[in-house]
């Protein structure tokens, strides 16, 4: 089964006068349990791609399938299935947690969606599930009754992970999940992400500008440049033997800590 299939997807923003091709003719197949890293710089279209996969916006043209099902934003049954099986974490955990909500309410939000009412594959005992995911991401259970500002950046990203895991998704989308974090915290969150993806057999699609993170966490990589997927394939072959000039430039741009 494929997790996601994109077939000649285009996304155009703007009116008739000034059109911007955020994504041009993008085709990509993500099989289940693969870990994809999508690398690109600002304006490459990587965030647009993630939003299309998350069902937050439709493509202008082209076909998108998830778990062998056509993604139709107006179809309630499809959306219910997407919302229970695809979850997302964001770059800045300061911005992705509502400061006025308790952690338990934040984490249980995906479970409370009316779309998921009556589904058997979604946990029903919310309090129990909140406690369960809190321990899975390594946070104390008394976190549930506290507010986001009481936590550090790394802990907040754990909370965001707990929220994403709450409905037992099959696919996890991640938008620069560690780039807003300190180097010292980054390793912890990456380790946790790896462990969780392993133990819950998740498909991971991670957008990032950090090639080191991709090399460490992902087994496939796609390079986006100005809305075009210029290169894609297994991490080892793309990174050790880049075919495209842009990929090479990107690889050389990273300052290494040689030791």
């Amino acid at each position: 089964m494929t997790a996601f299939l994109l077939d000649h997807v285009n996304k155009v923003f703007g009116g008739r006068r000034r059109e911007v091709n955020a994504l041009s003719d993008l085709s990509l197949t993500v099989a289940q349990n693969q870990r994809w890293g999508i690398v690109g710089e600002s304006g490459s279209g990587k965030t647009t791609l993630l939003k299309i996969l998350a069902g937050l916006m439709p493509p202008t043209s082209g076909r998108v399938q998830f778990l062998d099902r056509d993604l139709d934003l107006n179809n309630r049954a499809t959306m219910a299935s997407l919302r229970s099986s695809v979850q997302m974490i964001f770059q800045d955990p300061r911005s992705s947690l509502n400061p006025r909500m308790k952690i338990s309410d934040i984490i249980s939000e995906p479970l409370r969606s009316p779309l998921l009412k009556g589904r058997t594959d979604v946990p029903t005992d919310m309090r129990a599930r909140v406690d369960e995911v809190l321990s899975e991401v390594g946070l104390p259970l008394d976190s549930a009754d506290r507010y986001p500002h009481e936590f550090s950046g790394g802990q907040r990203q754990r909370i965001a992970l707990a929220r994403a895991l709450a409905p037992r998704p099959k696919i996890l989308l991640a938008d620069e999940p560690v780039s807003a974090l300190d180097v010292s915290v980054r390793a912890q969150v990456l380790n946790l992400l790896n462990t969780l993806v392993d133990s819950f057999e998740l498909t991971l699609i991670m957008v990032t500008h950090d090639l080191g993170v991709v090399r460490h966490t992902c087994d496939y990589v796609g390079v986006l440049h100005q809305g075009v997927l210029v290169e894609s394939g297994p991490v080892s072959s793309v990174m050790n033997d880049p075919r495209q000039g842009y990929t090479r430039e990107l690889l050389n741009a990273v300052p290494r800590l040689d030791s």
């Binding site: 180097v183 010292s184 980054r186 390793a187 912890q188 990456l190 380790n191 790896n194 080191g212 993170v213 090399r215 460490h216 966490t217 087994d219 991490v235 290494r256 800590l257 030791s259």
Partner: peptide, 15 residues
């Protein structure tokens, strides 16, 4: 922690 490339992919990163 900064030297992420020195770690085998998938292995635990030092903290």
């Amino acid at each position: 922690t900064a030297n992420i490339d020195a770690v085998t992919p998938g292995e635990r990163l030092p903290v």
